[in-house]
Amino acid sequence: MPIIEVSDLAKQYPLPDNKSEKFFAVNGVSLAIEAGEIFGILGPNGAGKTTTLEMMEGLNDIDGGTALIDGISVNDNPYKVKEVIGVQLQANEYFDNINLEELLSLFAALYNNNADPIALLKKVQLEEKAKAKPNNLSGGQKQRFSIACALVNEPKVLFLDEPTTGLDPQAKRNLWDLVRKLNKAGMTIVLTTHNMEEAEELCDRIAIMDKGKIIAEGTPQELILEYAPEPPEAPLHGDLEDVFLVLTGHELRE
């Protein structure tokens, strides 16, 4: 049985230039994610990836459809769902003047448990930064710290929203290793990304979203076989980026 079952999820927002008209930011998204998978959601800016995640996380009201995580309905029991998920958001700023160790014990208090901050920091290789303030961390360290915060409640499902955006190659690979390590330990991971290499390298399965809908879903290999252009059009080889561009077009987004 899948650990995440999403069917027909929908979210409507008023149009930015015409408040009386509405548009679907997410329009009928259905997903079944198996326990132990690393599942990637790809899509151009504004495709509805983050909104889809936020509805699953209980951050955003679900306007239509249902979401079940570990058998708990997000629609009916958002607070119960929050207990079993860990979330890393795109914004990763925290309170000023509070160090990493103190922030982690705050998060532990939010879940009413007594997770050991130092053990969590070790998990993400930040133990010697225990007394540092988040503002003094590098981009990669910030992302790893965000993941440490998301691990406080030993979640069954970990949501990562563009975890490697803006990271240098070393930090990116380091983060991939961390994600693989967590996944090996049994955690289901759902991530969004713009990085095709990341999707191909890291994800067991991928869904490509555009204009609020899922337009393709499968393992990276399946998607390449099915959608990558034939050799004459892509003389060297077909990769996931070609798949992405064929499916979502070359037009610039935002």
């Binding site: 996380e57 209980g58 951050l59 607070y79 929050k82 207990e83 998920i85 979330v87 958001l89 795109q90 914004a91 990763n92 700023e93 925290y94 309170f95 998060f107 939010l110 879940y111 009413n112 915060c149 409640n153």
Partner: peptide
């Protein structure tokens, strides 16, 4: 706190 995304981060915990 909202600008920094802290409120959002708190809101995905059971607080």
């Amino acid at each position: 706190y909202r600008r920094k995304g802290i409120l959002k981060r708190l809101f995905v915990t059971p607080i």
